[in-house]
């Protein structure tokens, strides 16, 4: 007999862990949408943020102060990357920009370890990871917290893009860069704002992932987890990043539990990539990827 209770538990667990993937993917989407750059360094930024935060904590800086300082550092880092790496490369082909961010990711990783050392740090945000019972389904308190934080962040961004001038300028640049240039928008400023936003996302993702996995070098590899999310959701859609993250999270867990046994288990690590590959064949632009708004 099919155990619905268990199915729902796996599904909910998957969706909640998917929220964490969404967080990483959103950082990608922000930058890709406005500048067409696939920022491979997003993972390194997450590592850098988490490492900075945890190192400050360990040196006795109080929690809120450490958080503020980390945010400030990431904002400065984002603006510096825009100014010194991407601006000189404006109008270069996408592959050049991608290679630049790939190189950048190594520089940031190296800098993080040079500054703070290479040992593994534990990070305790003060939220227990004990599961609690909702109508017979066990839910992790930490996962719920992570989902709430991610939800709040997304809502904040949505409001920002909808109601502020910078947000409107951001959407204009994302829509048509040449036209944005022609109407007089200062693109470097918009890009700096976007890298700042990506830096803030990196802080949030870094703290949550760091608390879950420990703050260590491999944290930067979660970019690889974001790729199937982006393939599924579309590289240029924030809504896509969220839905894609949830789907990937759910698929991973469900596949591990229900399909895994046929392969001798351990398929969680690659099931998402198989799904992404299949998806590429059917819908290359992703679920929410830009279908041009055009009258026919």
């Amino acid at each position: 007999m099919f155990d619905y209770q268990f199915f729902i538990e796996v599904l909910v667990g998957g969706l909640l862990s998917g929220v964490m993937y969404s967080l990483v993917a959103i950082g990608f989407v922000l930058i890709y949408k406005t500048s067409g750059v696939l920022n491979f360094a997003q993972g390194a930024m997450i590592l850098f943020a988490a490492l900075t935060f945890v190192s400050l904590l360990e040196r006795g800086v109080p929690f809120p102060l450490a958080l503020l300082a980390t945010l400030a550092v990431m904002v400065v880092l984002g603006i510096a990357v825009e100014r010194f790496v991407l601006r000189p490369l404006v109008n270069q082909p996408p592959i050049t920009l991608f290679m630049a961010t790939l190189g950048l990711s190594y520089v940031i990783e190296g800098a993080a370890q040079l500054l703070w050392g290479a040992q593994v740090h534990g990070l305790d945000l003060g939220i227990s990871d004990t599961p609690f019972d909702v109508a017979g389904v066990l839910i992790s308190q930490f996962d719920l917290f992570a989902a709430a934080v991610a939800g709040a962040l997304v809502a904040l961004f949505a409001l920002f893009f909808r109601y502020t001038r910078t947000g409107l300028a951001f959407r204009a640049v994302a829509d048509d860069q040449f036209a944005a240039l022609a109407v007089g928008l200062r693109l470097p400023r918009v890009w700096a704002a976007v890298w700042t936003a990506a830096g803030i996302v990196a802080v949030v993702a870094g703290l949550l992932w760091g608390a879950r996995l420990g703050v260590q070098f491999s944290l930067s590899l979660i970019v690889l987890k974001a790729l199937p999310v982006l393939v599924l959701g579309g590289f240029d859609s924030i809504a896509g990043a969220i839905v894609g993250g949830l789907l990937i999270g759910a698929i991973e867990k469900l596949a591990e539990v229900y399909v895994g046994p046929f392969f001798g288990g351990g398929i969680e690590a690659w099931a998402a990539y198989v799904v992404a590959l299949g998806f590429l064949l059917v819908r290359p632009s992703g679920l929410f990827g830009q279908k041009l708004v055009e009258r026919v």
Binding site: R165, L168, A169, R171, A172, A174, D175, D176, F178, A179, A180, A182, V183, G184, L185, L292, V293, E294
Partner: peptide, 17 residues
């Protein structure tokens, strides 16, 4: 070169920005 995913009014406001 209108911003296709923005409303007509938002397009105009971008001009002012």
């Amino acid at each position: 070169h209108c911003f296709h995913s923005l409303t007509v009014e938002e397009n105009l406001i971008v001009g002012a920005i």
